[in-house]
Structures are given as C-alpha cells and as structure tokens.
Amino acid sequence: MAIFPPEQRVWWNEPIEKSEVMWITIAFIWALVMFFMMPYWHIVGEQNLSNEAYKIKPDVYAEKVEAWAAKYKVREEGDTGIPVVHPPAGGDVYMLGRLWEWWPVVELEEGQSYRFHLSSLDWMHGWSLLPENINIQVHPGYEMIFTVKPTSSGEFGVICNEFCGIGHHTMVGKIHVVAK
C-alpha cells in the first residue's frame, strides 16, 4: 500500500506488469515524436520565431523607429494622427510598444517578406496580432528581429496581451496588408 513502506526489502527487482511495460514504451515513443517535432518544424515549417535580438537603449530604438517612419510615411490613420508607414517590399519594418500604443501603423504587401523589428520603450508589452493570433513578448531594452511574411490581406489588429498598467486594455495598433 502506498501509505505504508513497501513490504519487500528489495522491491527494485520485482517484475513489472505487462500493460505497464507496454504503456511506458508507447508513451516514450510519443515523447520522442513530440520532441523531434520542434527541430523538424525548424527545418520544414514556415512558422519559426527567429532568436535574433540585441540589447538596445529605449531612446536609441525610438530614434530608429521615428527616422524610419518619417522616411516611409504614406498617410495618417483616419483622424488619429498616427502615421501609416509603407516600407519597400522585402525591407525593414519597425514597431514600438509604449504606454499605451503600438506605433506606428504599418502597411505591408501580401506575400512579401519583411525584417520586423520590435521593442518596448517602457514596460513589458505583449504583441498580439489578430485575428492571426501570433503572440510575442516584448521587452524594453531588447530589440527583436524576425522575418514576417503576410499570407493574407486586410486589416489586422495588434493588441497588448501583457499587463502594462491601467491603460493596458486600450493599447491597440494596426497592420494593413494590401493584396498585390
């Protein structure tokens, strides 16, 4: 009984029941399958988050984003005054998180790949692209760079899903994807 000491002095050499052996074998094989799915997807899958990242001072990052936005600004988003930035296909895209907005609004072309830069100027934020449902943790002081290839067009929301203070639930940005 599990609440009393084992009755044999040497219990390690007791035989193991057949269904236990079978289950352990099956479970171990399944464990290996799940393990190798991850490296496998790095080789054949299209959705892998790159680990390219740099330490960066928030004000330095802000300057980079602003310079880039000024260069490729095409219009403003409605009457919000927030610039919409349309970079050349295949180029760099910058977005920053701060209390409480994702800045700027970005316009991309469907089917093109972009080098996407992401960082925060103040607190941690959660970059959540909807309705795709791609979610990335954004830290202040770290610039993350990954390649993004929009495979659908339309208007996408970027919300914040890391608690970042009382305005957390108002932190919404946008990405437009135009069909070619």
Partner: peptide
Amino acid sequence: MSDTGSNEKIPFMQQ
C-alpha cells in the same frame, strides 16, 4: 520484510 532473503544486496537504483 522477513519473507525475502534479508541479506540480498540492495540494487543501486533502489539505494
């Protein structure tokens, strides 16, 4: 406890 040979060596994993 007394039913198994009490001087059987305890296997390493059990130890």
